[in-house]
């Protein structure tokens, strides 16, 4: 599904060379929910950037869904990102001038769907995160948790094979964080592969697989057991937010 072999990534400034990743090897299988942890500066964000095709690498081999990434130019990497990968960012990265509908619309535009298709997908995905009724609102009018759910809706609207999450709960309080987390688990349960970078060991335990990164290398930990988390099911209902929010 996702295979990284001996990936090397070096950041260069005028005088300093930083080896962000070296001999980085990882295999992620379809349906995995991988949590990536590690101290800051360990290379986890670099890994995420490379996995998300946001950055290139110097050496090694990276195959995503059967496609050899090393030989892709910027345009085709953009297309792959658009078709296969959904992103969730720590600070949500919603576009402040666009309402929720238009925000979710952004990747779908680049995908080239027609108008009806986009509308259907936007409505479905906002429905799924329980914000269908606030489609015309601006991000600033929402709470942090709601904003992150919009970001999740945006990531899912294109039905990607992978979901990459970068500290998805880092800017949220624990209640909101937990509700976002269970939403992710549901998404994973529906078959989407998720790779989540986090520094929160508690969250990491909720993933099906844990990877620890240190000094640009992987040191895998045991698979955690995540089957028995007793959070409410995050399937949308018509009555409002799918996730119970304590406010």
């Amino acid at each position: 599904m996702l295979t990284m072999t001996d990936i090397k990534k070096v950041y260069r400034t005028d005088s300093i060379e930083t080896h962000a990743l070296r001999d980085f090897n990882l295999q992620v299988n379809e349906g995995d929910f991988v949590a990536v942890t590690g101290p800051s500066g360990s290379g986890k964000t670099t890994f995420l950037n490379i996995a998300g095709l946001l950055e290139t690498f110097e050496e090694g081999r990276f195959e995503l869904d059967g496609v050899d990434i090393s030989h892709q130019n910027d345009a085709s990497r953009s297309r792959l990102r658009n078709q296969k990968i959904g992103f969730i960012f720590q600070s949500f990265n919603l576009i402040p001038d666009l309402n929720l509908f238009d925000n979710v619309d952004v990747p779908l535009r680049y995908r080239g769907f027609n108008r009806q298709e986009r509308k259907k997908r936007i409505e479905n995905s906002l429905e799924m995160v329980g914000l269908a009724k606030r489609m015309k609102h601006l991000p600033a009018q929402l709470s942090g948790g709601q904003q992150q759910r919009v970001a999740i809706a945006r990531a899912l609207a294109g039905e990607p094979r992978f979901l990459l999450a970068d500290e998805p709960t880092g800017n949220l309080d624990s209640n909101m964080a937990q509700s976002v987390m269970s939403l992710l688990k549901d998404i994973n349960a529906n078959g989407t592969t998720i790779i989540m970078v986090t520094h929160d060991a508690g969250l990491a335990t909720q993933a099906t697989r844990n990877i620890h990164v240190r000094d640009g290398k992987v040191s895998e930990m045991n698979e955690s057991l995540s089957a028995k988390v007793d959070m409410p099911n995050a399937v949308a209902t018509d009555n409002g937010p799918a996730v119970a929010l304590v406010k």
């Binding site: 953009s78 576009i95 990747p107 680049y110």
Partner: peptide, 15 residues
């Protein structure tokens, strides 16, 4: 930031 996000979400440079 917005532009970076658009790029991450699949916008090509041309877009």
């Amino acid at each position: 930031k917005q532009i970076g996000t658009r790029r991450a979400l699949g916008a090509s440079q041309q877009a």
